[in-house]
Amino acid sequence: MEVDHYAILGLPSGVQGAKVSHENIIKAFRLQALKLHPDKRRDDPDAHKNFLRLKNSYEILKDRQSRKAYDDVVRAKHEKIIQDLKRQEMMARKKAELVMK
């Protein structure tokens, strides 16, 4: 399963995330950090793991270069999915045409 770093920060996911400003990435992280920090969740055994996950996503999105690379991967995937959909659609249409004939 692929990780959606934007979703982990509570932001719109996938290609929509790429439109979020750098400042809002920081703000979103801080908001989540105040909620998820293990100091705030003393009784949650998963707190540490969850927080590191948040931190990890933030590290990727905060760095402009790694964020761009991530966005590119996401966009490529997104485009591939759209292409696949289009191809499937085309195939379906072709099949239908063949049947018609």
Partner: peptide, 14 residues
């Protein structure tokens, strides 16, 4: 404490 190593930037991508 949450003590993570400073992560070397520009390294491997997700």
């Amino acid at each position: 404490g949450v003590m993570t190593k400073i992560i070397p930037r520009n390294t491997t991508l997700p």
